[in-house]
Write a protein that binds this DNA or RNA. Structure first.
Lengths: 223, 223
DNA sequence: GTCAAGCGGATTGTCAGACAATCTTGAAAT
DNA sequence: ATTTCAAGATTGTCTGACAATCCGCTTGAC
């Protein structure tokens, strides 16, 4: 009997790889908000055909990472502060709930994982690598969302966070934001570790509110 | 000066129409859960080309209305009760929040609209037209979500409700469900009309919980 | 000089056809 | 009954094409 029974890696299609590449490109801010994406350019850059690219673009459109206007084609939407506020509000709703549930149900093993990710963020926070800060912080939330016992909550949250990725790099590099973020996240961790639902909810709410405020500051200070 | 200035209807593309048609077909239960969708068949039935169809399918995949497995193609996902529960829980979170906000901020004009939609549901509830019941009830929620002041909340909610459309027809035709639904909705309406946030939240939560219970009953009674 | 009309290039929307890779099904063999 | 294998069906992807639409620029009228 083969060793890798049932572990078959589902073959990665061109479209999936393309979606991942483009998503990453968008996250890393490679495209300016408002700028148009030219299909033929992307095709040659990615080395794929137009139908494949267009399928990938439709996926990204449904995720709201790009906009496609008929006869104008795809572009990076400019995120207004109004919409960003709306996203932060829903994110608060979801993340607070997830933290509360997590406090009640996380396993010891996963809790250690959460602790490790907090340490990773601590390390990143003391450096000046804002990319590392963003990714380690994202890992921390991911673990909480993955252990709240509701996969839909997790999925919706991931979609929302993706849409405000634009801000996260900027606000993390604000003066002292990484350090205060660390304090807030540690509070969340402590509450979850203690199995204190109410405290976890409170700390989580506080964290999202401060993240929102930081995002606003970073937006105002930018042009 | 032309009369219709600025009212330009953005041209509907084949892909948009296809997405709408397929979405409607899925809502109306035309496809059995678990059944596969054959691209070539759909192309001839819809009278479109395969690239256009595949773009539409990618959009629906991102909405989680269909699944696309590499080398197996698109199919209607079988909604497990586990996932359905998760959806109802998040829906509760969102809908309660929306009802509460709506109570605080809805305009008099929109309130009358809400009242009219309640009347429409009342009429449908006394009939046996379960399709009319579902659509009028959906209108009622839509108005609440559209007036909660958070477009993202509305958007996410719509996506979730779409995924459980499968249940809504079934549970509405349960014995007495339409009537008790009417009572619950009337309570929500009264609370919003009175501007009572707390009551609106409570009534809304009650309503979602009962809808979930009804869905579970309808699922158990089915095979 | 300013503004409108119109022209041309660029880009998208959509289609047709093709072919290899993969899955599924059913028959054959043990 | 179970396994093996081959034929058919289906998907993943590409190439090439063409009409419709949009955008910028020139041109011409006032």
């Amino acid at each position: 009997m083969p060793v890798d029974m049932n572990l078959r890696i589902s073959p990665r299609t061109v479209q999936q790889e393309t979606v991942d590449k483009l998503r990453l490109a968008i996250f890393s801010g490679l495209f300016q908000p408002g700028s148009r994406l030219i299909e033929s350019q992307l095709c040659t850059q990615l080395g794929i055909s137009r139908p494949s690219l267009r399928e990938a673009l439709r996926s990204l459109e449904a995720e709201r990472l790009i906009e496609i206007v008929p006869n104008r084609g795809p572009s990076i939407p400019a995120l207004s502060w109004e919409v960003a506020t709306a996203i932060y509000e829903v994110r608060e709703l979801l993340e607070v709930e997830a933290a509360g549930r997590c406090a009640l149900r996380i396993s010891a093993e996963r809790l250690r994982e959460l602790e490790r990710s907090l340490s990773a963020f601590e390390l990143a926070a003391s450096s000046n690598d804002s990319l590392a800060q963003v990714t380690t912080a994202a890992d921390f939330y991911s673990i909480i969302l993955a252990n709240c016992g509701n996969p839909v909550l997790e999925e919706v949250h991931r979609g929302l966070v993706a849409r405000i990725s634009f801000f996260r790099g900027r606000s993390m590099s604000l003066d002292g934001r990484a350090q205060s973020s660390l304090t807030e996240m540690r509070e969340i961790y402590e509450a979850i570790a203690a199995g204190d639902e109410k405290a976890a909810r409170k700390a989580s709410r506080q964290h999202v509110l401060k993240a929102k405020a930081a995002a606003k500051r970073s937006m105002d200070s930018a042009t």
